[in-house]
Amino acid sequence: MEQILYAIPFLGHGLYITLLVSAIVVALSLFLGVLFGVGLVYGPWPVALMVRIFSDCIRGIPILVLIFVVYYGFPQLGLNMSSFWAAVLALTLFKTAQVIEYVRGAIGSIPRGQMEGAMSIGLVFSDRLRFVIFPQAVRRFLPPWINGVTDAIKGSALVSLLGVVDLMQAINQVIGRTYEPMPLYLLGAFIYFAINYSLSSLSRMLERRYSYIRD
């Protein structure tokens, strides 16, 4: 117990890295996923095809393999990066492919007539998205996306495989010194759970907030 207390600052830094990796991955994948998702739904066919191939390929590879491909493969292409950024890039690619599919599903659930109503009053494409399509699609997008954020936080534990000292790796290192795996793994499990439970509560709250839109 004493040893665990002693390890807390170290674990705290691990948690910080876990949250940092998750935040970067979530933010980047949200931006890229919405951009590519719109390209998939509304883009000219070459763009849509490229996004479709990207998404299908990425989602067809286990995330673990993806991480090693980026970490070992990219330097061979002359792209050197630290294990931190290699891990972040791999997780971002994976998450982006998921966001693309959430966006496609959410936009696809909006009736065609909405776009046409917006066209008929003379709105340009970006305004049609911003004022008509996105405000309605966000309601379908949020629940799976927040679910995906919790996946990203859990999935970020994989960066420990590249030696990045996130929460998971910090726990492993403390166990390496104390030889007391159970209390530490339980503590780790509790921290991941606490973060993700608050996120899913937030998701339920948001769902209620958007429920005024009728189908």
């Binding site: 007539g113 109503g117 008929s120 309605q136």
Partner: peptide
Amino acid sequence: FQSFNLFPH
């Protein structure tokens, strides 16, 4: 439009 196409939000 026949189906109104009002913006429901």
